[in-house]
Design a protein around this nucleic acid. Sequence first.
DNA 1: TCCTTAATGAAAATGATTTTCATTAACAAT
DNA 2: ATTGTTAATGAAAATCATTTTCATTAAGGA
Lengths: 154, 154
Amino acid sequence: MNGKNNPEWHRNFRQRGMRITEPRKAILEVLNNTTEHLSAEEIYMSVHRTYPNVGLTTVYRNLELLEEMGIIAKFHFGDGRSRYELIHSPQKPGHHHHLICTGCKQIIDYDDFVEEEIELLTKVEQALSAAHNFQITGHTIQFYGICHACRGNL
Amino acid sequence: MNGKNNPEWHRNFRQRGMRITEPRKAILEVLNNTTEHLSAEEIYMSVHRTYPNVGLTTVYRNLELLEEMGIIAKFHFGDGRSRYELIHSPQKPGHHHHLICTGCKQIIDYDDFVEEEIELLTKVEQALSAAHNFQITGHTIQFYGICHACRGNL
DNA sequence: TCCTTAATGAAAATGATTTTCATTAACAAT
DNA sequence: ATTGTTAATGAAAATCATTTTCATTAAGGA
Ligand SMILES: [Mn+2]
Ligand SMILES: [Mn+2]
Ligand SMILES: [Zn+2]
Ligand SMILES: [Zn+2]
């Protein structure tokens, strides 16, 4: 729960001429303390408990900003809303990918084989950069399937 | 341009008790003749030229259906609308992945290293299935970056 | 040709995200 | 500590993709 006072964020913010506000600290705090992949509205509701006067609009605005700054990642898991995750968080494995249950929509972080995946990705990235004259900045890997519980309910 | 009369689709449709209609043939025809990843509205506009009385709602409904049938794939590339692609098309490489320019939003199909990617994915899928008791049915791999043209405009 | 009902199209509804605009508050300068 | 500048905010309205509703049409088996 020291997330909101992380000096690196402060530095990052101030460098850009951005101010450190209550809503911003609150949003980072929420993301810092969850293992989930929250939507804007979920983050809003969570922030709202402690700061009832923070608006949903502000949450959206700051999520966009934090993504641009490379502090959070935005995902589309196919349920029609964007979901966000702190890139460096005590609650998460390091670099990981996602397993999505198309039944119950749960999202599982995994890092099995991530080293090997990264190794191949690095190779592919180099090849693609050369072949398509394209500078790669990131990737998304997601597996879709049915979790154990959902398989039971068929 | 024989897409719309593909006997396999016909069989597929009839098996499900589904009727073969003009809008359906038109949508498949459009997807069969493009190398792009069209949105529902883009497909609608294209269909509209030949069949001005086909509505956008019908396009949405049939895209959903075709996806369930495994005939087309639906993607989220981050521009706020879903995009669709025929899974087997004369206009496309076989199994491929995507390279997305965050500048101009263009999408490049690639199949360099796809065999190796698939090989690793298969391995990862098996491990994940076992470790998380999860039955994997599909995956998404996307690379994000900046294309040559967009790099020039910085 | 007739009948059943799957499929359609127009319009309205929904739901996530963005825009507008008047007000507030962060923080650098005093 | 006080003040001034302007980045940031919140409420409400607007936007935009997608879905729902419902009356009408037409595929295709009988
Ligand atoms: Mn995650
Ligand atoms: Mn493609
Ligand atoms: Zn599940
Ligand atoms: Zn580009």
